[in-house]
Amino acid sequence: MDVKDGQTVKGTNFVNLREAGDPVELGKFYSEQGADELVFLDITASHEGRKTFAEMVSRVAATVNIPFTVGGGIGELKDVDRLLNAGADKVSVNSAALRRPELIDEITNHFGSQVCVVAIDAHEDEQGQWTCYLNGGRIPTERGLFEWAHEAQERGAGEILFTSMNHDGVKTGFANEALRRLSDSLSIPIIASGGAGAKEHFRDTFLEGHSDAALAASVFHFGEIKIPELKKYLKSEGITVR
């Protein structure tokens, strides 16, 4: 769930936000539907220098009975401490870690690798080069996807949440080629993000992309794919799911 001003929103290629409800209610609904984990990203936090709402995190923690990750605007340890104390299981860091990679070491040394998800927004150019972006896909960096993901792992990241900006919101499937390269070369779990539009896309990212988990937003928010049906389908395709 991408959260802005306390409301869940979903962009298409990171712009044109449409509202999709109260994050706490939506989180409860998804946990009852059989979602395995929830991710709440305060998508404007980094851009506007705001901090994720610890208040919303507390409400989520009181309401849902499955693990959840919170991200957006985390720049230092005290942000992490506040969010974990509010009840989050994991935090995801993105722009701040690209700007100051030591943040990953600090988080994992204090709270353990299992707490630290490194989220990466990357874009593939016409030459096939993947570049990491800052601030929700607004500012390109000098860092390449694969070398940055490797460094994040070396610094202690527990998971990589990779969003392909080329695929996000387009609903034609996940970036399986890049995902496979990440998953096969790294020893930490890779979460696929960006591009889910059909049940087959989930199957493909597990089988072809070697992803450890798949994340989607709008197809669930707008009821295009229902989680129980998706899981039934994946089981029928021989993929182990809860």
């Binding site: 395995d36 353990g112 690798s113 299992q114 527990g158 998971e159 020893s187 930490i188 779990p189």
Partner: peptide, 14 residues
């Protein structure tokens, strides 16, 4: 002690 590439530590998930 991981034995294969798929064996990721920490063991995290369902």
């Amino acid at each position: 002690c991981p034995e294969r590439h798929e064996d990721k530590v920490p063991c995290m998930g369902w």
